[in-house]
Amino acid sequence: MTAETPTPAVGQIWQDNDPRSHGRQLRIVETDATHAVVELTVPRGAGHLHAKPGRRTRIRLDRFRPTSTGYRYIGTA
Rank of each mutant, 00 (worst) to 15 (best):
M1R: 03
M1H: 06
T2S: 11
T2K: 08
T2H: 03
T2N: 10
A3W: 07
A3R: 08
A3T: 13
E4H: 05
T5P: 06
P6F: 01
P6L: 07
T7D: 13
P8T: 03
A9F: 08
V10C: 05
V10L: 06
G11H: 05
Q12G: 06
Q12V: 02
I13D: 10
W14T: 01
W14C: 00
N17P: 12
D18I: 00
D18N: 11
D18E: 07
P19T: 06
R20K: 10
R20N: 07
S21G: 02
H22Y: 09
H22L: 11
H22I: 07
G23E: 09
R24F: 03
R24H: 00
Q25H: 08
L26N: 08
L26W: 15
R27E: 06
R27N: 00
R27V: 06
R27G: 03
I28E: 04
V29L: 05
E30I: 07
D32P: 10
D32Q: 07
D32S: 13
A33W: 09
A33Q: 11
T34Y: 14
A36R: 06
A36P: 14
V37Y: 07
V38P: 09
E39A: 05
E39C: 01
E39V: 15
E39L: 03
L40E: 15
L40C: 13
V42Y: 00
V42L: 14
P43V: 10
R44V: 09
R44L: 13
G45M: 11
G45H: 11
A46Q: 07
G47D: 15
H48D: 15
H48V: 12
L49E: 14
L49V: 12
H50T: 12
H50S: 13
H50P: 01
A51C: 07
K52E: 15
K52Q: 14
P53R: 03
P53K: 03
G54W: 05
R56S: 04
T57C: 01
I59D: 04
R60Y: 10
R60N: 13
L61G: 04
D62F: 15
R63W: 11
F64A: 01
F64N: 02
F64H: 07
R65M: 04
R65Q: 13
R65F: 00
P66E: 09
S68A: 13
S68F: 02
S68D: 14
T69G: 08
T69R: 12
T69W: 08
Y71L: 12
Y71R: 01
Y71H: 10
Y71V: 02
R72Q: 11
R72W: 02
R72T: 11
I74P: 08
I74T: 09
G75R: 09
A77Y: 02
